[in-house]
Amino acid sequence: MYQVVDKQTIGPNLTQYEIMAPRIARARKCGQFVIVRPFAHSERIPLTVADTNPGKGTITLIVQTVGKTTLEMSQIEKGGAFQDVAGPLGMPSHIEKFGTVVVIGGGLGTAVIYPQAIALKEVGNKIVTIIGARTKDLLIMQDLLAKLSDQLIMTTDDGSSGKKGLVTHALQELIDDPNSRVDAVYCAGPVIMMKAVAQVTKPHNIPTIVSLNPVMVDGTGMCGGCRVTVGGKTKFACVDGPEFDGHQVDYDELMDRLTTYKPQEKNSLDQFKSHTCKCGRH
């Protein structure tokens, strides 16, 4: 069992967990993830390690409640424990000094790019961060990113905070602005957003690294469920990625594969919700 040392709500449907996992805390490099099975009956779900405290032996996960497993997980309180946490998995982020790097996080992808931004900063890059969400309440980690970044741009679809519009608009403006540089782009978020970002950078040949999120089971290259097409070749995101060259990824295939279990996911969530209502405190 893996103890939940701390738990905080950091936004609507967004929970930050600090988990005791000393070996993972020590081994983990930026860009890697863990596979979590919160209960014995749960699915194995991949979650990016947002931060670690090797001295204390803990790792930090930031989790958005989207379905049955993440919802049930959110009922585990501080002092409780996760059944299984395995990792760190995946290739560490490719970190080098480019000059100015634009780091883009959409929705929950912000949790994924945060450690990348730290690592990119450490090797001497200038960091411009763009975070976007549908609406103000869904923007996360502004304070942390504001401190870290040389420039922080926020966008919301409805204009409730920062610029109105999409992250790609903000990125296009940066590219078009003769006074700013964009030497590389790191991006994580909804697949459709990563696809759009790659389309913006491609004509300018700006190196673009995206972090992919296919459905996984083992996370060790054993099942092939996480396969994605990159540069016309099949790759296993859990061992070859999860980060890939954004200009080579077949996003449409990934988006399509992500819908594989939609009916089952809905069924599972509905049953869980109706069950909790019947036996809960209501």
């Binding site: 099942c223 469920g225 279990y261």
Partner: peptide, 25 residues
């Protein structure tokens, strides 16, 4: 399209044949 590894792991290890009692589909 599954690899046999994925299919059998889902069913045997993760108990998918008992979905939704077990969460893995």
């Amino acid at each position: 399209v599954y690899s046999a590894n994925e299919y059998l792991t889902r069913v045997n290890l993760m108990g998918a044949y008992q979905f939704p009692k077990f969460d893995t589909p």
